[in-house]
Computed example of a mutant assay.
Amino acid sequence: MTNNDTSHLTASDVAETRIDTDLLITVSGPPGCGATTLCNRLAAALDCPYVSGGDIFRELADEKGFSLNQQIAEADTSDSIDRALDERLQSIAEKWGQADKPFILESRLAGWLAGEHADLRLWLDAPESVRLERIDGRIETEAEMRVREVSEAGRYQSYYDIDVDDREFYDLQINTARWDKEGVFQLVRAAIETYDRETDEGAFDTPPVDV
Rank of each mutant, 00 (worst) to 15 (best):
V209G: 03
L120N: 03
G115W: 06
A11V: 07
T26E: 11
A45D: 06
T17A: 12
I139T: 14
D171C: 02
V14G: 03
G54I: 11
R58A: 11
R88M: 15
I174R: 04
R121Q: 07
E106D: 14
L132K: 06
R131C: 09
Q157V: 09
E16N: 15
G34C: 09
E198N: 12
N4L: 14
R108Q: 13
Y50M: 02
A84M: 10
Q71F: 09
F103S: 01
D62I: 02
D47P: 08
D47G: 11
E16G: 15
R134Y: 12
G202I: 10
T10F: 05
R58V: 12
A93H: 00
G202K: 09
Y156N: 09
E182Q: 12
N69S: 13
V14Q: 12
S158V: 02
S28P: 03
G154Y: 09
L38Y: 05
V188Y: 00
R58E: 10
P49T: 11
D196R: 10
A110D: 02
Q157F: 08
I19D: 07
L60I: 15
D163I: 11
E201H: 10
C39L: 06
L9H: 07
A203F: 01
L89D: 05
A45M: 08
A114R: 02
W123A: 01
T2D: 14
I135W: 06
T77R: 14
T77M: 08
V209S: 01
T199G: 01
R108F: 04
Q186D: 13
K181F: 13
R197C: 06
L122W: 01
A177E: 06
T6G: 01
G32T: 05
C48W: 04
E106L: 07
L23A: 08
T21S: 15
V188F: 08
T2K: 08
G29N: 04
L109M: 13
E87F: 12
F57Q: 07
A73T: 13
R167I: 15
V130E: 11
A35S: 13
K181G: 03
D22M: 02
T206V: 12
D171Q: 04
E59D: 15
F66I: 06
T199R: 08
M145D: 05
L85R: 07
C33S: 15
I56C: 08
E133C: 04
L60H: 10
V188Q: 00
S67Q: 07
Y156S: 04
D205S: 14
D119N: 12
D136L: 10
